[in-house]
């Protein structure tokens, strides 16, 4: 089946929506997503949910250990565990 330039599938729309949460969707991809959002309820619901998750994560100021920090904790723990 020939792939349309403007009209995209629901899966592709979700993929673009995910990428746009990280600022990695291209301008053209955002245009295609915008067109699909005009008529697809499922994509609209997914986008709303996805945006809400991004907002929640940003508002939470959640923090985590990076690999080197985790390694440091792991090393000192394993040293103690082996004693």
């Amino acid at each position: 089946m020939k792939k349309s330039i403007l009209f995209i599938s629901c899966e592709e729309a979700h993929n673009i929506c995910d990428k746009s949460q990280y600022g990695e969707a291209t301008g053209w991809e955002r245009v295609k997503l915008g067109i699909r959002l005009c008529w697809c309820k499922v994509t609209r619901a997914y986008t709303k949910k996805n945006n809400k998750l991004t907002d929640v994560i940003n508002n939470s100021k959640i923090d985590c250990l990076d690999d080197s920090e985790l390694k440091k904790i792991k090393q000192s723990f394993e040293k103690e565990l082996s004693n």
């Binding site: 959640i62 923090d63 250990l65 920090e69 985790l70 440091k72 904790i73 000192s76 723990f77």
Partner: peptide, 29 residues
């Protein structure tokens, strides 16, 4: 399994209370 399962949870719990990454890591350790 402690490190794998709880490190990040405990770190996040600590960093919001001490606001210093190194101190938080030490406390988790």
């Amino acid at each position: 399994d402690w490190i794998k399962l709880y490190s990040d949870y405990l770190f996040n719990y600590t960093i919001t209370r001490v606001s210093d990454r190194e101190i938080a890591q030490d406390l988790v350790s």
